[in-house]
Write a protein that binds this DNA or RNA. Sequence first.
DNA 1: GTCTATAACTCGATAGAC
DNA 2: GTCTATCGAGTTATAGAC
Lengths: 202, 202
Amino acid sequence: MTEKQRSIMRASIKLFATKGFHASSTAEIAKEAGVAEGTIFRHYKSKKDILLAVVAPVLVKFAAPFILRDIREIFNREAELSVAQIVTELYRNRLELIEANEKHVRILLQEAFFHDEIREALLSTVFRETRTLADQLINSRIEAGELRPLPSEAVFRAILSSLIGLVLFKHVTDRDGFAKRTEEEQIAITVDILLHGIANRP
Amino acid sequence: MTEKQRSIMRASIKLFATKGFHASSTAEIAKEAGVAEGTIFRHYKSKKDILLAVVAPVLVKFAAPFILRDIREIFNREAELSVAQIVTELYRNRLELIEANEKHVRILLQEAFFHDEIREALLSTVFRETRTLADQLINSRIEAGELRPLPSEAVFRAILSSLIGLVLFKHVTDRDGFAKRTEEEQIAITVDILLHGIANRP
DNA sequence: GTCTATAACTCGATAGAC
DNA sequence: GTCTATCGAGTTATAGAC
């Protein structure tokens, strides 16, 4: 990857995140990146290629760390971690990752509306793989009596919904300035509600 | 509003929802609407005008009271209904509304990513008012001992998160064909988990 | 229907690295 | 001398505009 290429990536991320893919012209990208327009097409065979190049690393990032790599480990070791602990760590980890990759996430979600490839990639990597691993964990914890005997699909949905809620509300309330509680407290309350919802009572 | 104008609106909504604003040309809109391209510019001074000056305000102004009306209605009967019943009805009602206005919802969400005006309008009308109404209900039910003494913000987030989860999963699993349960069952399980999470034990 | 701008994209020329 | 990254004028199609 040459310096120019990195520059094209940086410019594309900036423009796609703020104006969207369709509204950003290759001429703008070239200008923002400080390269000739032709240079863009030496490296990417089409404008859409730039988009996919921007989005791909994020998909990998979100599919790979923690949950996909470590959950199986945790699960196989008959872990000493409770579901509450796992979910808390999961939420922390995801919020951090989203914050660190905010622009990329924006682009990914925005363009998932329009491009089948991106939507499909998102579903088949992040979603499906996560779901498969989560199902194993959930079912084993149900058998162990830690969780209520609910359909694992519903439990998965509850866990993911709470995470999405945390992310959305963070952005909404941040901008409003009426978030009095710290993020750590928000996570704690959310996990408390979630666990009351899915766990067996002691 | 003339018949042609209505036709342009209808065509715009259809195209914007499926391809997005930038990917839809005025030529396409004209063709879809069965009018000459020039007609569009007699009514709207630019393409963006169709979106901002017409589509967005119409959506927000007409959608907001409509959305809130049902919520108010449901909340007004609150005395006789349990939180579980209220939330169940709310979810049914919202899912129905979203299904019936899928295209409008898509445009709103898509454009909310890019246009501050739309995002702000959504937040300051639908979101804030709903939140105010919900807060009253939640706090009164906490005082009555029906709900656990949690911050109403967190309870509101839990209720809304579950709804968002239902909507998202509906679209994902629909396309996957692995939704075995009916929507009514999905709602019931979701409400069950939610209520276990936020309600006091009997 | 027509005009003008601009979109994505091409390609021959160039220049420095080895 | 060849190779590879780069440039940027040039091409073609189509956009918005009226």
